[in-house]
Design a protein around this nucleic acid. Structure first.
Lengths: 152, 152
DNA sequence: TCCAAATAGTTGCGCACGCAACTACTTAGG
DNA sequence: CCTAAGTAGTTGCGTGCGCAACTATTTGGA
């Protein structure tokens, strides 16, 4: 096991910037959403459903896209179901399964919140960056993600 | 409140890549560290102390750099103190304050683990990227961080 | 000098999460 | 068929975290 090369200055900036700034950025965006009584997890859940066919997704698929465990999704659903933003619907074909379905109330709510959330994402990240940085972030995370898919 | 511009394709790639890949990447690196009985928080704590003057930092400064609340740091300290990697030292000048001090055992342990952690960071992120992507990540997070410092 | 305000650290509490175990149902192989 | 293995979702439990409240100490005016 050879000692790997240490990080040079640019690599260190990239790595340290990433791990120190990411939590701060996420917390800031989470606080922005808090005004509407939502946290980032709730928002992501509603956003995923709004983009899905018929505004609904199988629970297991939703859990995967949200990077949540099955139990984590069950509990998170409890919150948005209680708020009447989402309802659970039994799958007619597979009685084990159920769908998370965005209600009309949930959709109206999301249509109100989404532009404000987008504004926060722009002001806190996207609009601060030039075109080549945007491009580089996209390709960098695509590469990292692809590597994670092959190695676990 | 005008509706802000929606994200174009490159912006969407950057944003979605960031929010979906980051948790997966962090989880993977966390699993890598788990082999040594450490989680990412413990590692960061030891790493910060190893780079500090006299291998020690005031608790409140350490909490800030680790992005932890005071109570969060208190609890995290409990773990590494029990493992004898860190010890609490009373500040002689300010009897409210105390230092977290990396023990010899903790330093030896970190010297063993750091190269392996670095190898994981390289293979999961840094070595996947070309020079301009590294550069862009560094400058992008520096800009985001600077903006967070001014706006909160 | 003295007391109010600020600061360092800890503790009680609640929340979100993952893991493991469980129930209920579906699917595959004999 | 019928049973074993697999899959969907929920629940119990433990963990790590932040917030608020608390103690102890320091600091900054009147």
């Amino acid at each position: 096991m050879a000692i790997p090369r240490w990080l040079n200055e640019a690599e260190m900036n990239a790595w340290l910037g990433f791990i120190t700034t990411t939590p701060d950025l996420m917390n800031a965006i989470e606080r922005d959403l808090g005004v509407f009584g939502l946290d980032a997890g709730d928002y992501q859940l509603l956003a995923m459903l709004s983009e899905a066919q018929d505004h609904q997704l199988k629970m297991c698929d939703l859990a995967d896209t949200l990077r949540l465990s099955r139990s984590g999704l069950t509990r998170r659903m409890d919150g948005v179901v209680k708020a009447k933003y989402v309802e659970r619907i039994q799958d007619k074909d597979d009685r084990r399964a159920s769908f998370a379905h965005l209600t009309a109330k949930g959709y109206e709510f999301l249509k109100k919140v989404a532009p404000l959330h987008l504004k926060d994402v722009r002001s806190r990240m996207i609009d601060l960056l030039n075109e080549s940085e945007i491009q580089a972030l996209g390709s960098a995370f695509a590469k990292i993600n692809a590597h994670l898919r092959t190695t676990g």
